[in-house]
Design a protein around this nucleic acid. Structure first.
Lengths: 198, 198
DNA sequence: TGTACATCAGTGAACGCGCGTTCACTGATGTAC
DNA sequence: TGTACATCAGTGAACGCGCGTTCACTGATGTAC
């Protein structure tokens, strides 16, 4: 049946995008090659015309997911970011949410190629919100508490991801699941506003 | 071949303990019933004399793992706890480490019985370190920053778990993996010591 | 521009394999007398 | 305490099933003339 080169590239991108969503929803082991090709509107046999292996696609889907998140959060300041990230809406729809939170636990048991994609993802998420301070603040030059250093971003990242993952591990609609989100959102926001008092 | 009732209970406990370790190392989907019975020294057929299903064992193994962690950290103060939890040693041997960190990502996609076990695990870990303040601090009565409230413990828990999980998602021996641990350890310890200045 | 042909994206059957679970069987345990 | 027998933890073969991957095939695309 072949297909235009442009169409083929579009199909490939479509498969990656669908896979990225499905993996976030069900985990790497929860989605088969046949599942994800069907979700993209194809039969499973053609999979290996696009990807060397399932692992290969997993890495591509992760990278795609990180890029999506980075794009979505690029315009947000820290406060907006935290409010969105720790919302019930984000928690309850993992397929459209942060790939890092949805799959970092799985990534720990995957081959090096996947882990490398996740490390790159962490770096891109670190660069993502609060770009307004831009190039100046990645050094130690501006020692004040006001600045937005790499360490501070890393710290916030670990906490929001930890909170989201733990909240998702609780039974649906349980008070504890909401408490985790609420406590961490409040704590981070108050830390942000107190460090903003220059 | 039957076996003494005491022996049978010991065997059951042994299976749960081995399963708990294997699940932490490889994830729920990464360990089969045959694998885990072999690791415990049995053939797979006997599994269903002890457990209704694999899911049933998963819940028991999780509960067992949380109890282990709670017991191990019961005597530690907050500083000791954080130093150990965010150590390379803990990160690199998940089979002997925190069940919550190893499996919370998997738990999010499991049936309610597993999620319930995880919610109970979160509660028990919240109660675990710094028991010296004991019964007094679970209310709002002691409004000072010095006290060790449920919210503060929850906050710390989300951050140490987030940091450990992200560090494990990075390639082995990568600088980023160590940086995540180091940055979060330093940040939490400095927050602890500054709140200790009453 | 028109024709002949090689390419190759996508199809769907087939592969070997490991999974969770079931089952008939074994033989020591625990119980009833 | 000693004997006869029911129980049932553990064995290992077997079950149906879905997995990742391979393969011969199809027919539109893209290319060489």
């Amino acid at each position: 049946m072949k297909v235009t080169k442009a169409q083929m590239l579009a199909n490939r991108a479509h498969i990656i995008a669908k896979a990225s969503t499905l993996f976030r929803e069900r985990g790497y082991d929860g989605v088969g090659v046949a599942d994800l090709m069907a979700a993209a509107g194809f039969t499973h046999g053609g999979f290996y015309k696009h990807f060397r292996s399932k692992t290969n696609l997993m890495a591509e889907a992760a990278t795609c997911g990180f890029a999506q998140t980075a794009a979505k959060t690029a315009g947000l300041d820290a406060i907006e970011f935290v409010k969105h990230y720790l919302s019930r809406q984000h928690r309850d729809v993992p397929g459209k949410g942060c790939t890092m939170a949805a799959l970092c636990g799985d990534a720990a048991r995957q081959p090096k190629s996947i882990k490398a994609a996740f490390a790159a993802g962490i770096e891109s998420l670190l660069a993502s919100p609060e770009r307004e301070n831009d190039e100046r603040d990645d050094g130690l030059r501006n020692g004040g508490a006001r600045s937005d250093t790499r360490s501070q971003r890393l710290e916030m990242m670990t906490q929001v991801i930890g909170a989201l993952v733990l909240s998702r591990a609780c039974p649906d609609n349980s008070p504890l699941a909401d408490e985790i989100l609420d406590v961490c959102r409040t704590a981070i926001l108050s830390r942000l506003s107190s460090s903003a008092e220059a």
